[in-house]
């Protein structure tokens, strides 16, 4: 029993890390472009496939693959900003529709290239870590560790560097940010690229645990929505709390009840938060 609890705890925290990465990238893209990016989950899928290509096709080490995934995702994000989103900046409805189209193109593109079957991803490390009675597979510990490092790195970049300050200023008042020398033509593609890179890294990190297929993007996108609703749009502490809560609820409910019960509990929680506190657990009144 205590083994099951510990296992659920670890799984819940890993899921929480994944959801937080998805939610922060999603919020960043929304903040910068004012576009609800329905293609966000597909970048998770692309990240997972990139990791698969890097590790099994090219035989690269996992660390190098992750680094390449980030670089590729930022470039892809910049391209998407230029080609797909830029014409719809501040046009929320058209932008949202464009992102739906993009999601379809990416998913079907992956279907053509890789086929519909789930592909196994080789384990990066084998063996377990023991802390007394607690047993953690090393692969999960690695995923969790890298995920936390990526999140902390991202937080420091956003909150404690000149670049991050410029990006946050841009989100709040584009015109005044430009007036003080924030270069929009660089910040838009780079900001979007970073948001998308977070999704891609999440995909690459989770690939060894959950496998890879063209359809894996939908669930993380949905969870990103839920985290944003629960935590409050634009609140990073709120999102962190909500992501962790969501991960733990899911993992404990599926361990002790069933996987479908986990979805029921999650959505009940969303409904409750929307009824009782529509701005989210730690959210502000306005978006």
């Amino acid at each position: 029993m205590s083994f099951l609890i510990a296992q659920s705890l670890i799984n819940g925290v890993i899921l929480g890390t994944l959801y937080l990465m998805m939610a922060i990238g999603f919020t960043l893209v929304f903040g910068i472009m004012r576009i609800v990016n329905f293609a966000h989950g597909e970048f998770y899928m692309i990240g997972a496939f990139m990791a698969l290509i890097g590790v099994t096709w090219l035989g690269l080490p996992y660390a190098a693959t992750l680094a390449l995934t980030v670089v590729f995702a930022v470039l892809l994000g910049a391209l998407v900003e230029r080609v797909v989103f830029r014409p719809f900046r501040s046009d929320e409805l058209s932008g949202m529709i464009a992102s739906l189209g993009l999601a379809m193109i990416l998913q079907n593109g992956a279907l053509i290239f890789f086929g519909p079957d789930p592909q196994a991803f080789p384990a990066m490390v084998s063996g377990v870590l023991r802390f007394g009675d607690l047993i953690i597979p090393k692969s999960r510990a690695l995923t969790l560790g890298i995920g936390v490092v990526v999140l902390i790195g991202f937080y420091v970049l956003l909150m404690h560097t000149r670049f991050g300050r410029g990006l946050r200023a841009l989100v709040q008042d584009q015109q005044v940010a430009a007036l003080y020398g924030v270069r929009l033509e660089i910040m838009y593609p780079l900001g979007l690229g970073l948001g998308i890179a977070l999704a891609a890294v999440a995909g690459a990190l989770m690939a060894p645990l959950f496998g890879v297929s063209p359809f894996i993007g939908a669930a993380p996108l949905l969870k990103a929505f839920i985290v944003v609703i629960l935590g409050g749009l634009g609140s990073i502490p709120g999102a962190a709390l909500a992501a962790l809560l969501l991960g733990l609820i899911e993992s404990f409910t599926s361990s002790f009840v069933s996987a479908s019960a986990a979805d029921i509990v999650t959505f009940a929680l969303v409904v409750a938060v929307l009824l009782i506190r529509p701005s989210g657990i730690l959210g502000r009144g306005e978006a």
Binding site: R162, R165, G166, R168, A169, Q172, A177, G181
Partner: peptide
């Protein structure tokens, strides 16, 4: 910038 601190707002003036 309403959701930047006072000091961060001032630092934005010195962005370049």
């Amino acid at each position: 910038f309403p959701r930047l601190s006072v000091e961060e707002n001032l630092l934005m003036g010195a962005y370049t």
